Simulated scan of single mutants.
Amino acid sequence: MGKIIAVANQKGGVGKTTTCVNLAASMAATKRKVLVIDLDPQGNATMGSGIDKYEVAHSAYDLLIDEMPLDRVIEKETSGGYDLVAANSDVTAAEVKLMELFSREMRLRNALKDYKDHYDYIFIDCPPSLNMLTINAMSAADSVLVPMQCEYYALEGLTALVDTISKLAAVVNADLKIEGILRTMYDPRNRLSSDVSDQLKKHFGEKVYRTIIPRNIRLAEAPSFGSPVMYYDKSSSGAKAYLALAGEMLRREEQHKEVSVESASVG
C-alpha cells in the first residue's frame, strides 16, 4: 500500500517545496512510483518539475472541486521522473469554493482513495498557511514531514505546527502523525543553527532525520531550470543530501515493517 506524506510548515521560506520536489525525484530514482500533488497556488512545485503552470490542461482545482478522476488530472512528463498534479492560480479559487462544499475537508482524501495503491509514495506540497487546502492534505495524509530552518522563530513555529497536527488528528484524521522533522538550509558555522538543532533532537528524538540539508547554491538554482537538483547537478551537496534523505526514509520503513512482523509473530 502506498504512503501519503504531506510536506508542511506554516512558516514560508523553509525549503518546503524544495524538499517535496527533490525528495520525490530521489525516491523515483530508486525505482519507486511517486506522485507529487501541488496544493500551493503559487505552483512552485509544478514549475520546479519542468511543467509550465500556465499551460496545464488540468490542475488540483479539477481534482478537488470538479471531482475529476486522478488519472485525468496527472502530468506524466515531469523532469523528476514522477507523476504530478499541477497547481496554478486556479487553486486559489479552489480554496474559496471548498468552503461552500459538503465534506469539504475530505475532498482530497476521497479523490486519492482508489489510487493510493498505484504509488509507493504520494507527496503533497502544502501552502505555507493553515487553510482549507492544508486541511485537505492533512486529512488525506498518513503523516506530515516538516522541513524547518534551525533558527529561533522556526522553533516557535514548530511548536504551533505540532499543536495544529494534534488538533487536526482529533477532528479529521485520527491516524495522522509526524513522519519526521528535516533540518534545511543548514549552516554548521552558525552557532544558533547548532543550538536549535540540539534542542530539536532533545525534544523530538528519532523524529529528527539524521540527514541535514545544507545551504547550497545549486539547490537554489535548480528550480529556475525546471529541474530537481539531482538532474541539474548530481555532484552537488544538495543532490547528495536529498538522495541520503530518501535512503534514510526507506531504511526507516524497512525497520518499521520488521518490528511490525516481529510484534505480530509474538502476538
Rank of each mutant, 00 (worst) to 15 (best):
N9K: 02
S224D: 10
H256P: 03
D38Y: 06
G81E: 09
A94Y: 01
Y54C: 08
T92G: 10
A137G: 09
E156T: 10
G238E: 01
P127C: 12
R215A: 04
L108R: 06
S49Y: 05
G267H: 11
T134I: 05
E258S: 12
S236N: 04
Q10A: 06
K257F: 11
V261C: 05
R210T: 07
L64Q: 13
S237G: 04
N22W: 06
L64F: 09
V56E: 05
R252V: 00
V96W: 10
Y186I: 05
H58D: 05
V208R: 10
E253T: 11
N136C: 01
I51P: 04
L23P: 00
Q255D: 10
E254L: 09
T164N: 00
N9G: 08
L200W: 06
V34E: 14
T78D: 06
Y61S: 00
H256C: 09
S224Q: 09
A45Y: 14
N131T: 01
R183S: 14
N9R: 02
A222V: 02
T159I: 05
A87Y: 04
M132I: 14
Y231M: 01
K167T: 12
N216Y: 03
I51F: 08
R252H: 10
T134W: 08
T159S: 15
M99C: 08
L145W: 03
K202D: 14
L23T: 02
I122R: 06
P127L: 11
A244V: 00
A28W: 02
M132L: 11
A28I: 07
T159M: 09
A87V: 08
L112M: 11
H58M: 14
V85S: 11
Y232V: 00
F102V: 15
Y54E: 13
T164S: 07
C126K: 00
V34A: 13
M132Y: 04
S49W: 03
K33E: 12
E248C: 08
P147S: 09
R252C: 02
A154Q: 05
S139P: 02
Y232P: 02
Q199W: 02
A8Q: 11
I181E: 11
A170T: 13
I4R: 11
E75A: 13
S194P: 01
D117I: 00
R104N: 04
Y119M: 07
L161R: 07
P228L: 01
K257A: 15
V162P: 00
N9S: 07
L112N: 12
K53C: 08
Y119L: 05
N173C: 05
E221I: 10
A94V: 06
I37A: 09
L168I: 13
T18P: 15
Q255N: 14
V144D: 09
L168M: 15
S263I: 08
D38E: 06
L101T: 04
Y232E: 01
K167Y: 06
V14L: 01
T17Y: 07
E100A: 15
S236R: 06
S193P: 03
S194L: 11
E258V: 13
G50D: 09
G80V: 01
A244I: 04
Q199S: 13
T19V: 01
D117L: 07
Y152T: 14
G180R: 07
L250T: 11
